[in-house]
Amino acid sequence: MNEHSSFYFQSYEQWRHAITVRCNINLTPEYARARIHALSDPNDLHTQEFAAKYGDAYLKQVVAWFTRAEQST
């Protein structure tokens, strides 16, 4: 089991709550698009670090959640 598995959010609702309530980030379509763009860039250092730490599957899940947030806000 991955040592970071307790960090992973298991649902969109958990993830959205962490972003909007715990981190106090306004999850606007513009913010979501910016995060999707950054997380989809394999040359972005932060994206590389995220993928190395949490894995490609979780990276894709987070991008999917940002895409859902962009479409629902």
Score class of each variant (00 low, 15 high):
W65N: 00
A52N: 14
D44S: 10
P42A: 04
Q71E: 08
S11T: 15
Q61E: 09
A38P: 04
K60R: 07
Q61I: 12
A38V: 12
I25C: 01
V21N: 08
Y54E: 01
H37N: 15
A18N: 09
I25H: 09
F66N: 10
I25K: 10
E13A: 14
P42V: 12
H37D: 15
Q61A: 04
M1C: 03
Y58F: 14
Y8Q: 09
D41W: 10
I19R: 11
S6C: 04
A18G: 04
D56V: 07
N26F: 09
T20C: 04
W15I: 04
Q71S: 09
H4G: 00
P42C: 02
Y8T: 05
T73D: 02
L59R: 15
A32L: 12
A18R: 09
R35P: 02
L45P: 02
T47V: 10
Y12P: 03
R35C: 06
A32Q: 11
S40N: 15
Y8W: 08
I25S: 00
A34P: 05
S11W: 11
E49H: 14
V62G: 02
A52R: 11
R16V: 08
Q14R: 11
A32K: 14
Q14Y: 05
P29A: 08
F9L: 00
R16I: 09
I19E: 05
G55D: 03
K53F: 05
W65Q: 00
T20W: 03
L45R: 14
A18T: 07
V21G: 00
L39G: 05
Q48F: 05
E13D: 15
D44K: 07
A32R: 10
E49V: 15
Q71W: 01
I36D: 03
A69R: 06
R33D: 12
A52W: 05
L27M: 10
F50A: 00
S40M: 13
A69M: 05
E70L: 02
Y12K: 03
N43R: 14
T67P: 03
R68D: 02
V63S: 01
A57N: 13
Y12N: 02
S6M: 08
E3V: 06
I19M: 13
A64W: 01
T67D: 06
W65K: 00
H37F: 10
P42W: 01
M1W: 09
A57Q: 14
F7S: 07
S6Y: 06
E13V: 12
P42E: 13
E30H: 08
N26L: 07
H17D: 12
R68Q: 10
A57Y: 04
